[in-house]
Write a protein that binds this DNA or RNA. Structure first.
Lengths: 223, 223
DNA sequence: TACAGCGCAACTGTTCTACAGTTGCGCACA
DNA sequence: TGTGCGCAACTGTAGAACAGTTGCGCTGTA
């Protein structure tokens, strides 16, 4: 085993940095759904060539936050009931499948850690942080399936969901009662720890479905 | 309901066409794992600008068939035991989850159709076509979950798997005995039709796991 | 023989300029 | 009211140019 075990050089090109920057702005709500990403504006503002921005936007497209339309360029995605439904269906499938089987040790420990961090965050009343750690807890659930492919897929879902929550200003409402959130997650964790898979599945299902319902209702209630 | 119901204009840019072309060449085995996609060579050969090729390759990257390495450009992915394992784990999860619940009518019909086409193909002894319809049958299984998100994800997995099968020249061996393949798929279909979810899950699991084992064994047996 | 150092050719990453084609919008005109 | 035209803004694409990186072979040296 090498003395350099685990050392990897992280180089990145201008295009990758622009893509990452755009992604974080979008998730933070700096762009609204349906907004176009104008290449020349971004290019001049960031001091890079339009080509580079084009490439950045193609990279960004992989995150699912923007979609290309021919002759209109990149457009920020919009939440629709269908998309949100498909997203939550996928989410529910992965998570219920994950908790329907016994969770092994390293992943169980990771789950506990994730829950503990969520508890801390809840005390801090930093809403954005709470949401992030909430999602991180659920990522830890999916990680018990031990497939990097599934982890990556789930991460994509969460990026998109994160954006929708921002757009709908849902972070606020979701944590009117951080205690409820904690209680639900604790119930899930306890069911997993005790090996009671049937209960765990039901807890996860109802947790996700109630969230999905709320998002879709708010979506339908707009305009 | 409009008289133009379902009509959508399918425009595509040069970059998209180049990306699609490259993708089909790669899957067909025209590029080997680890091969670099040289921008200028492709550009001059196709009579497009290097910029356009760069964009095409970024689009191609979304299919998962190539990966970028800084200062080396796009490199065709290589099958590794870890990647193949993660892929099959994801596949097994989706498909077993799909058949563990009752399949409703439109999807059941689609499954039967997919199976019938597979039977036809098996008679034709056109190996590539058999593989495609085999994968299509499994896509139909995932489609019963009714989430476009899952469908898209599964499609990605299948593109990658398709490439690995080509690389390992597995199409040949897999269909030494098309009858066995048909039998396995028929068993799955029958279990689904009869509503015997437990059997369906077991059929699907063993089908996928035996395939996974074979691919990984061959992978380990090389060099 | 092994190997460090150098140099060169081939590429990638990036910029800049240019231009045809498309879209969106407002204005004039019917 | 609505149709058509024209213009401005942008996208899609091309092409040339150049710095920085990589891979590889050659050369001289231990």
């Amino acid at each position: 085993m090498s003395a350099l075990e685990g050392l990897v050089v992280q180089r990145s090109t201008a295009a990758q940095q622009v893509a990452a920057g755009l992604a974080s702005r979008i998730v933070a709500g700096a762009f609204a759904p349906g907004d176009r990403l104008r290449e020349s504006a971004i290019a001049t503002e960031l001091g890079v060539a339009r080509n580079t921005v084009r490439e950045a936007v193609r990279i960004l497209e992989q995150s699912g936050l923007v979609q290309y339309e021919v002759n209109r360029g990149a457009v920020v995605i919009s939440p629709t009931p269908e998309k949100v439904d498909a997203l939550y269906t996928a989410r529910e499938l992965l998570e219920t499948a994950a908790v329907s089987r016994p969770v092994r040790e390293p992943e169980l420990a990771a789950l506990k850690t994730a829950y503990d961090k969520l508890v801390e965050a809840a005390a801090s009343h930093d809403v954005l942080r709470i949401v992030d750690l909430d999602l991180a807890f659920h990522s830890a659930i999916v990680a018990t399936l031990r497939s990097s492919r599934l982890d990556e897929f789930y991460a994509e879902l969460m990026v998109e969901l994160r954006f929708y929550l921002t757009v709908l200003s849902l972070e606020d409402r979701e944590f009117e009662h951080p205690d409820d959130v904690l209680a639900e997650h604790r119930a899930i964790l306890e069911a997993i720890e005790s090996g009671d898979t049937a209960t765990a599945v039901e807890q996860v299902r109802s947790h996700i479905e109630s969230n999905a319902r709320r998002v879709i209702e708010i979506l339908n209630g707009r305009d």
